[in-house]
Nucleic acid binder design. Sequence first.
DNA 1: TCCTAAATCAGTAACGATTACTGATTTTAT
DNA 2: ATAAAATCAGTAATCGTTACTGATTTAGGA
Lengths: 123, 123
Amino acid sequence: MRNYSKQREAILKVLHNSKSHPTAAQVYEEVKKEIPNISLGTVYRNLTLLVESGEILSVAVGDGNDHFDGDNSFHLHLHCKKCGSITDVPVDSKTFDALSQSEGFCPQNAVCVVYGVCRNCNK
Amino acid sequence: MRNYSKQREAILKVLHNSKSHPTAAQVYEEVKKEIPNISLGTVYRNLTLLVESGEILSVAVGDGNDHFDGDNSFHLHLHCKKCGSITDVPVDSKTFDALSQSEGFCPQNAVCVVYGVCRNCNK
DNA sequence: TCCTAAATCAGTAACGATTACTGATTTTAT
DNA sequence: ATAAAATCAGTAATCGTTACTGATTTAGGA
């Protein structure tokens, strides 16, 4: 039973209008432009709710902060170890083989996590 | 200029002998069996060093803890939202399409991060 | 519209995984 | 053997995140 909330709406809008995969703190700064007295705790709580409902994705790239993605479709994230940028790439069977050519991105390593329910828990 | 250290060796051995993708605290508990007075800080510092040198992988599944993988080859991780297990799966072009059949795993979502250096930073 | 219960909020305190610091110990190369 | 650099154990500090509080907003029935 989830009620409407202006704050959650604004947070979702920030994510839909951004391609930079902001952190919770960055979402907070951005959403403050629309709702100046919003609380950082509110941002965290709603980001968690939106991740749980599948409306957004949480992306951990190992820089100590969670990043959030308003695009919840299945795609890869290219994370640059120098500038820290996170770039979306659609997934197809050639993607992994052809990253250097198609994206000018030199892949060094990758961590992919597929979320779901395992065989044992499906029984 | 990296020196040998018995502690780092033992940590690496724990990861190579494990398929369960332990957290830092779990590595600490395991490595204490061999080096009882090892410090948790030492475990964290060496895990960071090993990740930086590419000898191990850090896998964030969104449960609040970093998990570590002694297998640094490119593969997927299946994370069960019920039991929290993390399972390795080799990557091939059919993998994403056939997860449910081949692994009995029902994929709900996925976050894949490819680490590397982007086009701009390669200039 | 009015009213009540549930949901959400802002603000703040607490938590806990991780990092930084200290002086002692180990490693490596001379 | 010795000295500089690396690493260590132990502990304190950091900081992203979560939990708690009493106040406010939402939703649905009277």
